[in-house]
Design a protein around this nucleic acid. Sequence first.
DNA 1: AAGGTGACCGGTT
DNA 2: TAACCGGCCACCT
Length: 113
Amino acid sequence: MGKKEREYNFFNDVYEVVKLIPKGRATSYGAIAAYLGTKMSARMVGWAMNAAHNDKTIPAHRVVNRNGQLTGRFHFKAPTTMQYRLEKEGVKVKDDTIVDFSKVFWDPHKELY
DNA sequence: AAGGTGACCGGTT
DNA sequence: TAACCGGCCACCT
């Protein structure tokens, strides 16, 4: 098995959850890690998103940090891309932070089974 | 082969 | 309020 394939298998669980985030909602790195179990740390979720950043099938813009900040914005094509995509879905962003994040927040632990 | 490094997090100072 | 700390764990050098 090649390196690229192994990498994809390893991060696959993260990608599957990210793909389930509904339009107009967002979750956090830590929430995904908690949902997947103790083996996966929030840092690893960030690493997985980094590895996936050109995959158009993964809505990476819907993953932010626990405070709703768009900490991953510099990894997009332009630093404004992440905010643009969120606002296009009706999510308001101010000062690189999602407005009313608690209402936009999508917790995989509660919304998935 | 060992140590540095994250698109992080919760708690403490 | 902001800075810091320890835990996290696969990757990279």
